[in-house]
Nucleic acid binder design. Structure first.
Length: 613
DNA sequence: ATTGTAATAT
DNA sequence: GATATTACAA
């Protein structure tokens, strides 16, 4: 402030206006004592002329309110309108209304007469305030007088209250010779406002670029600066990216933890199912973080593929339908997961909440298993290996909510274990006879690994879903067969949660749909009209899928792989499971080297919760 | 000099 | 309350 003061006092040019010569003289004297440059006039009109004729000559106007030729407020208004200079009103009238009037007209201060020396001492602040924003960067360096003047002229977006008022009331209208001024001012204003960095809005597009950059760099290598470079977005700063990255990492972490936790819960609830045990034994530890690296995977025949990675791939490979489905599924959950993945759990109100109530899930599962459909199983790192079997034509008994389409796909976290505990019901159109397999693994190992071709999205999605599924089972000790409908790409119906439709509201879905910019039109179409909000908010960062050739290839490869397996195995659940594992195993082998856990990003130890089994 | 994280502002 | 921005230590 000292700087300001010194600076301002040097050349601050004040125009004093008061019809009373005595007052005017006193005022002038006082101002001069404070080193202000003063021009005094008894006539408001004269003042106005002076100002108009010398726009950049004055920095501040201090005027009496009651004047014969022109109301002080009028002058104030004109000045504000025309040159946007800070104006200080003086009056013997301390009536609130008067003061208020001054404020409304744009006065930056209201001095009560008689004005004292100290009253005018710091009037420079009004000039300084206006200048503040813009002055920081430029102009400052230019000659002070001019700079000051200019700054005065520029109706800055003052942070100061009074000035703000001034500004608001000083909307410039068209005035002949003000065009220049306007331009100047406007320009200045822009500068001023620009000085205040525009807040970056991470919409889908921007996020997409971000994710692409991250994937290109590799999650580990993705640091703000590099990301920024890759993104190549104007005006975006490293800080912006860093902030977003921070949020992004946090999100992924949450997802991981949530998934992990849920996986654990499942395991705990678990079952004596051999398959489960087998798996469990593999990792031994249920915590993701426990896995230090790919080598850990070597220990078991059934490698914990990065669930995310696998899941993502699988999903992707299965085809758009599946892929989309997953996205939706994820979408459903994203909200909660974002906010608190760890706590997320499907709100299951009653045991009979599950859509398949009345119908033994196991039965349903069996049916699923027997159906052809694409089955994909992903296993959470250590817990169960969920098996999902798609059964397009399977009809859920009347118990299912209306929302549920004619066909459903059941997914169980642990087929053998207890399918009933976790059933994912996927809605499918009858048209879509192919059905989509869905499944998910839990987590995000893959995502963590930059080498994975899989986009983080899939991972997130999968993990999210997975976590959801698992969690539900955990939460409901029994049966609940938490099921949630997943939207079929082709299906017109919306996704719904069988067990808890209200929870996964259409609304959420919709918004999600909107958020999925790059998805195939199919999905988009299915989505309920979007509100037009394209802002991206980590609902599903993963949704923002980076374009990647690699992904394509991988996808195709896997797709073919899956298809083959599925075909041959689709006759029995057991077979399916086996095939799945095989699939996974082989996949893992292939990608093993690629899998690198980023421990740091995985759940923190504390997060992995000791909820171990 | 940059990054990651916490604090703070919007 | 979420997210962006800023501050600051590593």
């Amino acid at each position: 402030m000292d700087d300001f003061r010194n600076e301002f006092h040097k050349g601050l040019h004040v125009l004093a206006v008061d019809d009373d010569s005595t007052c005017l003289k006193i005022l002038e004297t006082m101002l001069q004592k404070h080193k202000y440059h003063v021009t005094a006039t008894k006539n408001a009109q004269t003042a106005l002329n002076l100002l108009r004729g010398n726009k950049s000559g004055f920095d501040l106007v201090i005027s009496d309110v009651q004047m014969p030729d022109m109301d002080g407020f009028k002058l104030l208004e004109l000045v504000g309108l025309e040159m946007d200079l800070p104006v200080i009103m003086m009056s013997v009238d301390d009536d609130f209304k008067m003061v208020m009037k001054g404020i409304k007209h744009g006065a930056c201060d209201y001095l009560l007469k008689p004005v004292r020396l100290k009253d005018v001492k710091n009037i420079w602040q009004h000039v300084a305030r206006r200048r503040r924003m813009g002055s920081k960067e430029q102009d400052r360096s230019s000659n002070q007088d001019k700079a000051n003047t200019d700054s005065n002229e520029r109706g800055s977006v003052a942070t100061g209250n009074s000035d703000q008022n001034v500004k608001s009331s000083r909307k410039r209208r068209d005035e002949d010779d003000y065009d220049n001024d306007d331009q100047e001012n406007d320009h200045d204003n822009e500068d001023s406002s620009c000085h205040k960095k525009a807040r970056v809005v991470w919409n889908a597009e921007l996020h997409h670029k971000f994710v692409s950059a991250v994937n290109q760099l590799g999650f580990e290598k993705a640091v703000p600066k590099k990301i920024l470079d890759l993104m190549n977005v104007e005006k975006l700063t490293r800080e912006n990216v860093a902030s977003h990255l921070q949020k992004y990492r946090l999100y992924l972490k949450k997802i991981n933890c949530a998934a992990n936790r849920q996986a654990n819960m499942v395991a705990a609830l678990g079952t004596t199912d051999p398959s489960f045990l087998r798996i469990g034994s593999l990792s031994g530890v249920g915590h993701l973080h426990s896995l230090t690296g790919s080598q850990q995977f070597h220990n078991s025949t059934f490698r914990p593929f990065g669930p995310g990675g696998m899941a993502g791939r699988l999903n992707t490979s299965v085809g758009l339908n599946v892929h989309e489905t997953l996205q939706f599924g994820h979408a459903q959950n994203f909200y909660k997961s974002m906010h608190d993945p760890l706590k997320f759990q499907p709100a299951i109100i009653g045991g009979n909440q599950n859509g398949i109530q009345g119908v033994p899930l196991s039965t349903a599962v069996d049916q699923f298993q027997h159906n052809k459909g694409v089955g994909i199983a992903v296993s959470p790192i250590q817990s169960v290996s969920p098996f999902f079997d798609v059964q397009p034509n399977f009809s859920v008994p009347n118990k299912l909510p209306d929302l549920i389409p004619t066909s459903t796909v059941g997914c169980s976290a642990s087929p053998v274990l207890d399918v009933s505990n976790n059933a994912l019901v996927l809605k499918a159109d009858s048209e879509n006879t192919q059905g989509g397999g869905v499944l998910f693994g839990q987590t995000s190992l893959a995502s963590q690994n930059s080498q994975f071709s899989l986009p983080l999205l899939d991972q997130g999605r999968c993990s999210d879903i997975w976590s959801n599924t698992v969690q539900s089972s955990g939460t409901n000790s029994y049966p609940a067969g938490e099921t949630f409908g997943v939207r079929n790409l082709n299906g017109a119906s919306s996704i719904t949660s069988l067990s808890n439709p209200s929870h996964y509201s259409l609304k959420d879905m919709h918004s999600q749909g909107v958020l999925i910019p790059n998805n195939s039109g199919q999905i988009t179409n299915n989505v309920v009209p979007f509100q037009g909000n394209t802002d991206f908010s980590f609902f599903d960062p993963l949704l923002m899928k980076p374009d990647g050739v690699i992904e394509e290839n991988t996808l195709k490869q896997q797709q073919g792989y899956i298809m083959n397996h599925t075909k041959s195995q689709n006759n029995s659940a057991a077979n399916n499971l086996g095939s799945v594992e095989e699939f996974v195993s082989s996949m893992m082998k292939q990608k093993q080297e690629n899998v690198k856990l980023l421990e740091g990003y995985l759940c923190d130890n504390n997060l992995s919760d000791g909820t171990s089994i």
